[in-house]
Design a protein around this nucleic acid. Structure first.
Lengths: 341, 341
DNA sequence: AGTGCTTATGCACACGTGTGCAAGTAGAAG
DNA sequence: CTTCTACTTGCACACGTGTGCATAAGCACT
């Protein structure tokens, strides 16, 4: 009981395997009777093409590799989910790789991607990755690459990013308009574009609004422990009256801290942060959620990659697609409304 | 600038490709000098083995397919994340497939799995899948299968499940001990083992505690809309004083409803539910979280699958591994404590 | 120098598939 | 009956890799 091949069918039907191959591919040169016979037998035996052989033969592999820092943060899981569905609809299969925010692992992953001869790669780099030049090896193997969210702008590949600078600018502006003046920002390490751009947007907005710049406390990673240390430090010195968080984990720690201090969100303290944040945001009023359009970004990135795999030339100006985030305020009753400035 | 192969190296070094192959595989029959020369050249040229060829040659493919209903629910994303990391450590690559709770898509996925000749499959079936016999095709192709969480017990394959019956029993018992008497249960469709067993555990416990059985409202799927409809219906008739939810989405809708009714969680209303539920559970006191040990389940399932791939015989009694869930109560300050009965 | 043994490398094939080309058949036209 | 064309199928090779077997070279011992 072994896997049935085109040769098995050929032998059983007294044909040459090439005839069977042609019949299965609906070539016009095959006699209709033969074709029917082959198709019926293949179906009966449950024949499935061997894609390893197909690929070796020269055809494109239909596997897409996705490299992400992790898959349990909602941004990435929503993103990967969307790409996976789109890919499957288009006949691709998705292999998922987690760098676990480690540069070393990222390099290991690239080796695996090459060995498996994936048709294309979509990647969001780790926190440690200030320089994504190791990804350029893919070019030597003619594997198209699309970067998203956390990218390296020095790499000449299509990119899909959020306008990080702008959304922090808007967040600061809005908090200032609500009367908050000691607005702090709790950030990830400013190694990748994402956190650098956000810090820049934050700093520029603070200056423009004539506020005093608050120390950006850099959390070494997104663990609960480091976030709690950072938050404790933030409140112990020069207590801010508003905070913008890079992660829902920071936001959560802050909410706990505020409860402890007896401060009310929105009235006493402005709290904003990234992260879809599922349930929490819906039942707690006055939270400002900085939303990223993950599904749209996923779709854009997939289209870029699919085109690159098909060798369709990219429109030059489309080499980097920038999405705008949106800011919503929760009402505590399951609803939220958009903040327009 | 094309992909470098073993033959390219052989030609450049005036060797036969088989010699190069042996050198790269560290065979003793190769002269140390030749070996060094080959290794150096391969490294310099960035040679990476072509796994499609390897696999065609007869070697095992090192791709594991994971089939899940979706990847954006925390249980599955945590599960897949753990498996992906474990697999990569063991030299495997993971391809992810989402059934999107659709039986039709599940069948399509199985075809793709076979075509790609994956080394093994790990699956949690869709809500529509009352009968997972379509998975048995994998056996014909000698592809090992491990089921987890949502399984079909009639399939003779290793399984990793939660003791669903027991945890609902414990939840009811605990809510009863707190004085709640009108305990309802909001469930998913009782097609798969998971929801059937939970309903059974719930019903048995209700009877044993001498309480009156509340209608289990079946939500057609886990969407926010259907959950809101179900909750509205639940509260409009015969208002319960406690509720156990199958999904954090149900829990969320209930929390919003309770707020609207001015009822306090834990004091006026007992609320329990599945879902790790990240932030929300930490800041809201008195929630009972029914926790599933996703990471441990993932590890157990991976080990079962890895053994099956290696053709190691399974200990008979290990064919189904049952994990116990745990119940924790949130304290609202970031902490939670275990509920022991 | 011949025999036997060890060591290092080459040859040929297999895995499953697709395709250019040759070859075969049959029917039609002369 | 022959020749030409159209249609159908078979043959052989390629893709990249690993392995059993044969071959060749080197060396020691009689």
């Amino acid at each position: 009981m072994k896997r049935i091949t085109i040769k098995d069918i050929a032998k059983d039907l007294n044909l040459h395997h090439s005839t069977v191959s042609r019949a299965l591919r609906d070539e016009k040169s095959i006699h209709p009777d033969t074709r029917k016979k082959v198709l019926a037998y293949a179906r009966q035996k449950g024949y499935q093409v061997n894609r390893s052989a197909l690929h070796l033969r020269g055809g494109k592999n239909n596997v897409i590799g996705i490299v992400v820092p992790n898959i349990h943060h909602s941004f990435f899981s929503n993103y990967v989910s969307r790409v996976t569905n789109l890919a499957f609809e288009h006949g691709f299969v998705v292999s998922v790789f987690q760098s676990n925010e480690s540069l070393v692992q990222e390099k290991e992953i690239i080796k695996a991607l090459i060995q498996h001869n994936v048709a294309g790669v979509m990647a969001s780099v780790s926190m440690e990755t200030d320089n994504a030049s190791h990804f350029s090896i893919l070019k030597q193997f003619r594997i198209p690459l699309v970067l998203f969210d956390r990218v390296d702008f020095s790499l000449d590949v299509p990119k899909v990013v959020l306008n990080n600078n702008e959304i922090l600018d808007r967040a600061v502006k809005f908090l200032a308009s609500r009367g908050f003046s000691r607005i702090a920002y709790l950030s990830g390490p400013p190694v990748t574009n994402v956190f650098r751009d956000r810090q820049q947007g934050y700093a520029e907005a603070i200056n423009r609004e004539g506020l005093s710049y608050r120390n950006c406390l850099i959390s070494d990673n997104f663990s609960v422990e480091s976030s709690q240390r950072a938050i404790a430090k933030l409140f112990e010195n020069d207590c801010p009256d508003a905070l913008i968080c890079d992660s829902h984990i920071f936001m959560l720690g802050t909410m706990i801290k505020l409860k402890e201090l007896g401060m009310r969100i929105s009235e006493d303290f402005g709290l904003a942060g990234f992260g879809s944040f599922a349930g929490m945001s819906l039942i707690t009023p006055g939270l400002l959620i900085l939303q990223q359009p993950e599904a749209d970004m996923a779709e854009a990135a997939f289209n870029l990659l699919a085109n690159a795999i098909e060798d369709k030339p990219q429109p030059e100006n489309k080499n980097t697609i920038v999405f705008s985030g949106s800011i919503v305020e929760t009402e505590g009753d399951g609803n939220m409304h958009n903040i327009n400035l």
